[in-house]
Nucleic acid binder design. Structure first.
Length: 139
RNA sequence: CUACAAACCCGUGCUGCCGCUGUUUCGAAAGAAAUGGAGGAAAGUCCGGACAGCAUAGAGCGAUGCACCAUCUAACGGAUGGGGUUCUUUUUAAGAAUACAGAAAGUGCCACAGAAAAUAACCGCCGGAGCGUCAAGGCUUGCCGAAGCGCAACGGUAAGGGUGAAAAUGUGCGGUAAGAGCGCACGGUAGUUAUGGGUAACUAUAAUUGCGGGUAAACCUUGCAUGAUGAAAUGCCCAAUAGGCAGGCGCUUGAGGACUGCUCGUCCGAUGCCUGCGGGUAGGCAGAUAGAAUGUUGCAGCAAUGUAACAUCCAGAUAAAUGGCAGCAGCCCCGCAGCAAUGCGGGGUACAAAAUCCGGCUUACAGGGUUUGUAGUUUU
RNA sequence: GGCCGCGUAGUUUAAUGGAUAAAACGAAGGUUUCCGGUACCUUUGAUGUGAGUUCGAUUCUCGCCGUGGCUA
């Protein structure tokens, strides 16, 4: 079981991130979205193309309008990545078979957040996302 | 020792666990190990280059930028040193500022106030043809009339005219009808020439010529420089699909395909199938990290800087790495205790993150260090 | 990443380098009305910021700050 080794490790490698410009554009054009303050998620399910691909691909974005300084944006992105990395496994287990989830997290909060706040936000987001995925696939 | 100012420099470290990314090694792969991984401003994008393809006979017009001198530099609007000017002070000197060519090429503008804001007009001052008046006086007895007074064509003059940010070179003497650099003396200021100093800008002295405001960050003139575009530049490799071109096979005597592990069989099948070429999309690679590099020492130079030797390799991502958590230590500040060393408690630990790369400029920055200068205090 | 532009009352616009920075809408107060609206009167309130040039700066020059757009 190759998925087992991934499940035990808290990683966030290149294949688990959304990196292609085209995929991101189609995601923003066709994807569904909802907000859980201070985050907004845009997501989209597609058939899994390759067996070795990751079931979830994620990207992060922090608007320049909200946080002016590049240092602050870097800080928030890294905290969100860290929170996602440590809490991604419930989502991976809940994923339907032969489907791949593309999702993009956008930070909508005004101030800089702490690590604990980031973890809470990601957790709340996943709790809301998982039931939605199940209903979507049943439809 | 303390305070202030200037210049230059530094701008947290260690350990553990979990991660990201470049390179190398091992491995069939998954992955593992080793090792490297933000800055002095990486920022703002204000200048200058490298590099790239495009354009380009030569000359002119235009546009933009710069503007004391010398030096440095790949280059610059940058730097270093010097000069002039202005300002300040404790004024034989020191410090600060300085977009610092031309207003004697031309055009424009200068509110209010003021006579006037620029080829000097007006008031005033002086001369004054002539006219009027008066009547000393004269004679031809009703006319002429000096001086005085009044008006005044015309001419001379720029001394005076309380203003203003700014008013025609200042003071004195001479001179004149009144005046005036009209002349003289002592000055101020600008140009030219000579001599001395300096590479030069410039400066000192002497002679001589002149003196009709300011504004060129108003248009402009003069001199010098500039082709414009920017790595999303540019070059290369190429899936799938659909056209194009060439060749081959085949068109019911069946090329090829689907079902299958293989054969048979069944079905599809002719604007069909296969191969190659070409453009070149998605995507990828190069550009792209060993350089106008960094450090140390010596030499040249007042310095910026240059040069020689030796040593070092020091981020290279691409929806974009350099992180998260915990602990300990360091530094600074405050409070308490203490003669002191120090201890305890609390707080703070900045500004800011590469995006092709360099050289500058500008701006932000907790705290600390070195040197120099000034002031004060203590000791000798 | 690169390249352009714009900042004036609360808002939308004016203002040759010349002084009290103008107008409309708005806001506040008042008059009128039984009350509200309308109308009228009064008041409020601004050159983004720091330097420089100039006698004098919203205007000219430079540096910061903010803001909008273009570029695949």
């Amino acid at each position: 079981m190759s998925t087992n080794s991934i499940q035990q490790r808290y990683t966030l490698q290149a294949i688990e991130r959304l990196k292609l410009r085209k995929q991101i554009e189609t995601l923003f054009q066709t994807g569904e979205a909802f907000s859980v303050f201070p985050l907004r998620i845009v997501y989209r399910l597609i058939p899994l193309s390759d067996a070795s691909a990751s079931p979830v691909q994620v990207g992060f974005s922090i608007p320049k309008k909200r946080i002016k300084k590049a240092v602050g944006r870097n800080r928030v992105r890294r905290l969100l990545k860290e929170a996602w990395r440590l809490q991604k496994h419930p989502l991976y287990e809940a994923m339907p078979q032969n489907q791949q989830l593309h999702c993009f997290l956008i930070y909508t909060g005004e101030p800089l957040l702490t690590f604990e706040e980031a973890k809470k936000a990601v957790l709340k987001l996943q709790q809301k996302l998982i039931p939605k995925l199940k209903t979507d696939i049943s439809i």
